[in-house]
Design a protein around this nucleic acid. Structure first.
Length: 214
DNA sequence: ACCCAGGGTCATA
DNA sequence: TATGACCATGGG
């Protein structure tokens, strides 16, 4: 009876299990969450590869690197000066708080507030980290989520972030695995469906357009 | 040449 | 509260 869960099932049947987040460690997820801000994932992968090859994919290495050196490694992911500063702020905070294991002891609401206090960590990045790095039942709202569900007539699309997060978290079962898969499916589907500004202004799930990929 | 990509900060009204 | 400028690379 839940429209949101019905849509999840349609997406799951169409695209299957996504096994997100693509990374080798929780820390790599955190770094990726910052680097992917308004940036295509393929470019983020290049920057993460640079960090790995420079043996710089750790909080200590990132904090100790010069801003210029770090920005150079991050270059392929765009906004490299901005992201260098954000990653250093995040890693400095992470180390000051005692590391990942210490953060993992905190309750979700507390941790979320603290994440939002870090420079460069906004609601979506915080929720990426909470859900994918810490396994907390937090629903990530991104531009694709707004576009898909407004095209399906479920939301207006201009609601505040917290309003939409509340809608998903209160309507669906509070299951990290469900939230994990759902957000991943929304992203995968977006790459396979109507662009932001095609004439159709529809989602291929709405039955208006025959196919994906315009 | 244009559009877009798994946002966030800051200044302004 | 809500816009707008700004950040910047790379693929289609």
């Amino acid at each position: 009876m839940s429209k949101l869960f019905d849509i999840y099932q349609v997406l799951f049947r169409r695209y299957g299990k996504q096994n997100w987040w693509p990374a080798d460690s929780a820390f790599e997820i955190m770094v990726g969450a910052v680097l992917t801000q308004n940036t295509s994932w393929i470019n983020v992968e290049k920057a993460i590869d640079n960090l790995k090859q420079a043996d710089a994919l750790s909080a200590e290495a990132i904090v100790n690197a010069s801003a210029k050196r770090l920005a150079d490694l991050l270059r392929p992911s765009g906004y490299f000066n901005v992201k260098a500063r954000r990653l250093q702020a995040y890693c400095q905070w992470l180390l000051a708080e005692g590391g990942e294991a210490e953060l993992a002891r905190r309750d979700t609401d507390t941790l979320r507030r603290q994440l939002l206090n870090v420079h460069g960590i906004g609601p979506e990045t915080a929720d990426d980290i909470l859900l994918y790095a810490f396994g907390r039942p937090v629903f990530v709202i991104d531009a694709y989520t707004r576009r898909l569900f407004s095209r399906l007539g479920v939301i207006d699309g201009s609601e505040p972030y917290e309003t939409l997060r509340g809608l998903f978290e209160n309507t669906l079962a509070s299951d990290p695995q469900l939230f994990n898969e759902y957000h991943a499916l929304i992203v995968i589907h977006a790459k396979d469906c109507c662009r932001p500004k095609p004439r159709c202004e529809q989602c291929c799930l709405a039955g208006q357009c025959a196919s994906a990929s315009h």
